[in-house]
Amino acid sequence: MIASIHFRHFKALRATSLHLTAFNLVIGPNGSGKSSLIQAIQRLRFLSQQPLDTELQPSLSPELQHPELVFRFPPPNEGIEVKLSCRAGMVCDHLHVSAISSDNWEVLKQSLVTSRVYMFDHYAMAAPCTGAVEEGLAANGGNLAAVYHVIKRFDPGAFADLQAEVVRLLPEFSGLDVRENSEGLLELGLILREDREFIPAEGLSQGVLYMLGYVALAFDPRPPSVVCIEDLDRGIHPRKLRELCDLLYRLSYPEQYGLHRPPTQVIATTHSPYLLDQFRDHPEEVVIAEKQGRAATFSRLVDRPDLKELLQEGSLGDMWYSGILGGVPEESDPAAEAVTKNPLQP
């Protein structure tokens, strides 16, 4: 888990901080730093796998605005601060750890290595694959069949739970199976309730494949420590978004689902007002990314002093679209431009 990130000159995130909770839904216009947030976490993961650099940060030209990221962590790692900065150039390639004990960093590092960024690709998910599952579900979901196959083979009980969830979410199907095709590759498919026909993944819709990906993630017995998902709502019908949130809550709040394992921190982005509607009872989980000119900042919805009153007036999604929550694209002002070009004559 990551407690907070401070951004300095990191793309559009010139000078802003973000406190993170177990589940975080980030909304905002294009170019407001949502993807940069996820890239920062990817960068942390990459650099934490490299040998620790004991040298002090090299002195850089003060004229250049070099990017810098500072990560802090919740207990028991609150004493650790990780700073990503640049040796030269403008890419964060230097990791410096301030820790009370190096043992703490070694433990935290093992956890950070399991963080994942997902951007599902339904073509990759549908394609038959080999049985290799080295690091869990692949970023594009391309080894989805192999993930289900491993669970089916080594943990039949978990596979039964997973299958029950799939059937509940997709009631037109009565089961899920992984079969080996003539080329020895694994092929995932669903069994139609109507006539028991096996529909291979290539015949399934984009949204169904994404849902299968999220189920695999939520039922992973050893899920990543941090999961980042771009455009969480992509391909999913608005009426299924509640169940999508349930799947991710299973990761973030395992104890509420009767699971005894550490929570997975989820950071998801969206442009869907319908998905935002799902967070009416938990506005503390919503982050608003705001873009003003070339600079972007983050704020938490729950920090709005008038939130309680606003929630009585309508849905979060409608309020966001209206602009009163912020996190909307900047628009040109044709009237102001016209007045500038043609000022009133005294």
Partner: peptide
């Protein structure tokens, strides 16, 4: 509050739809 009612009924702050 609404949240308290939900907690009393569902025994959790984040009940799944099921």
């Amino acid at each position: 509050t609404r949240a308290e009612l939900k907690k009393r009924v569902y025994d959790t702050e984040r009940p799944s739809l099921e």
